[in-house]
Amino acid sequence: MRAEWIIESLLRAAALASASVSVLIFAFMAYLGYPLVEKGQLGNLFTRPWLPDQGLYGIYPMIVGTLWIASLALLFGFPLSLGYAALIQLTTDRKNAFSRFLRKVAEIMTGIPTVVYGFVGIFLLVPFIRRWLGGGSGMCILSAALLLAVVISPTMILFFTDSFARVPREHLRAVDALGGRPAQKLLYVVLPRSLRGIGCGLVLAFGRAMGDTLIALMVAGNAVAVPGSVSDSARTLTAHIALVTAADFDSLEFRTLFACGLVLYFMTTLTVTTVGVLGRRGEARRP
């Protein structure tokens, strides 16, 4: 029995240690970022621009940049993904190989590395946007958002098709029995029953869009000014962390990176909790 006890303790230790990693990340960043609060920089941090020469280290421009790029990516990506998922649903009825092909492609898309998207984006999309806007470098919010829309769409598509698949089969058979067309089935039965799943997928995709580093870093231009339009260059919180150069712990500049990390962490926790609550309520309502 002693061996049993040891094994259980080991397994519990592994589970606890793994769970504590996410707490540890938060605690460490909060601990190292705390001097900002102490020096009364907190207000400045979220409202001021980034002007190191004048001793101003506000991350407000990066927050705005992140929100711009992530929201725009969602704006482009959501209709595309919903349409794609709807197409999968529409073509399943005919026992169509096309539906299976679409699903397979979405799965494969989750495996395409973001750095590859970023690489192609620089050499294909950025020159195109530059010509289309008729000036500038082409490295702007619009380029990043378009590319990011493609990056986050497989997450949404798979989430949507999964929630479509959870609609009870009896309901679908009822529509078939009444002679309903696939479009009617989708519009009046499947979509209304999956609203919660679609909401979850949206929140999840927003979290992914905000957390992505490489796309924004490679094609958004990384300017630290507050962007005024979609053709402006912008820097996201993630790219700001990636561009860290100072390793001097005590400098104010380095401390602000922890604030960026904490904002991202907070957003992540918020999306995960939202999805969890939405999902659980959905479970509870189902008989």
Binding site: A19, S22, R208, M210, L264, Y265
Partner: peptide
């Protein structure tokens, strides 16, 4: 409860995890 923590870790942006590794290293270095 554990599941919630794992979900948060799974959704944490990889740059944040990288930055965590970086700053812990610098912290230990000092």
């Amino acid at each position: 409860i554990f599941g919630h923590f794992y979900d948060i870790l799974a959704a944490t942006p990889s740059i944040v995890i990288g930055f965590f590794g970086f700053s812990v290293t610098i912290f230990l270095h000092r």
